[in-house]
């Protein structure tokens, strides 16, 4: 058991790193736990062009390096470990780590983010890393001059498809609805792109192949018609699921598993705040995650000050 911490931040994406910056400047004794090195989901984003202050855009990895560098100037030394549980001991909150270490503080900010949702079809798990991918920047270059499928219709699916056109010969963009959800500027670019063919009202029912992906079975949801597409890869961008399993029901969550907070990032458990993609909210962006992180750190500071008065 380690004592005398003010705040434990779990997660080192934009929300966690921003919370660290605010907490460190408030002179809270703070530690940040991250299972990898800081950066979060943004690390897999090829190009960020909606974060203010970068009019030409910036790569996700570079932006996160700047967030980390900023936090390091304030003393950040991330604990490379995975949080596996949150428990309560009176006024104290205990964050249990995979290594067996336990971090104890009156306040905790949960900023564990989210991870890509799986399709849940036969062949997906077996062929992950063999043509099934959830990261275009990681795996795109392995599909040079091939025909591939992308599944999804939101910002990520469309943005990553546009990125993949640099490498591949052709993309089938498979979407279960008859229009995209992605922001208009991205839609315009994708709809005009000669390498992207849209398959509307269509779902993937099976991923085919033995050693590697050789095709996907698709189904038109309007007509029920089935077809096999010959593709060498399938990139899946159908949304995210929150990384909240480790909390094991300690905090109130919504039906999707996202942590419910008030507008000040307070969760159902006093002293515990949530920030970023892990939180139930409408808009999940780097800039809103950073905003959540700042608010959570500010509220943690207030919580600690109130506690000292009593």
């Amino acid at each position: 058991m380690e004592r005398e911490l003010d705040l434990v931040i779990v997660g080192g994406g934009p929300a966690g790193l921003t919370a660290y910056i605010y907490a460190a400047r408030a002179r809270l004794k703070t530690v940040l736990v991250e299972r990898l090195s800081p950066g979060g989901q943004v690390l897999v984003t090829d190009w960020v062009e909606n974060y203010p202050g970068f009019p030409e855009g910036i790569s996700g990895a570079e932006l996160m390096e700047k967030f980390s560098a900023h936090a390091r100037t304030l003393g950040l030394e991330p604990i490379l470990d995975e949080a596996v549980g949150l428990t309560v001991d009176g006024e104290l909150r205990l964050v249990h780590l995979a290594s067996g270490r336990i971090l104890v503080a009156p306040t905790v900010i949960v900023a564990t983010g989210a991870s890509p949702k799986k399709l849940g079809v036969p062949g997906e798990a077996e062929l992950t890393g063999k043509g099934v991918s959830y990261c275009a920047t990681c795996d795109g270059p392995f599909f040079r001059d091939e025909v591939i499928a992308v599944v999804g219709g939101g910002n990520t699916a469309v943005q990553e498809s546009l990125f993949l056109t640099r490498f591949v010969r052709k993309i089938y963009l498979i979407h279960r609805r008859d229009q995209l959800r992605a922001t208009k500027i991205l839609q315009e670019r994708a709809l005009d792109h000669p390498k992207i063919e849209f398959l509307w009202n269509t779902v993937v029912t099976e991923i085919l192949g033995q050693e590697k992906v050789e095709g996907v079975r698709i189904k038109n949801v309007k007509t029920g018609e089935e077809e096999v597409l010959q593709v060498g890869g399938i990139f899946i961008f159908i949304g995210i699921k929150p990384q909240t399993e480790w909390l094991d029901g300690v905090l109130a969550v919504d039906e999707g598993g996202f942590i419910v907070t008030d507008s000040e990032m307070r969760t159902s458990l006093p002293g515990v705040f949530a920030a970023g993609d892990v939180r139930a909210k409408a808009c999940r962006q780097i800039v809103t995650a950073a905003g959540d992180g700042a608010t959570a750190a500010y509220m943690a500071e207030h919580y600690l000050a109130e506690r000292r008065k009593t």
Binding site: L36, S37, G39, V42, L43, V44, T45, G60, A61, M64, C135, T137, C138, P141
Partner: peptide, 8 residues
């Protein structure tokens, strides 16, 4: 060019 490679 792989972000998660840097992370790991």
């Amino acid at each position: 060019w792989c972000g998660p490679c840097r992370a790991i």
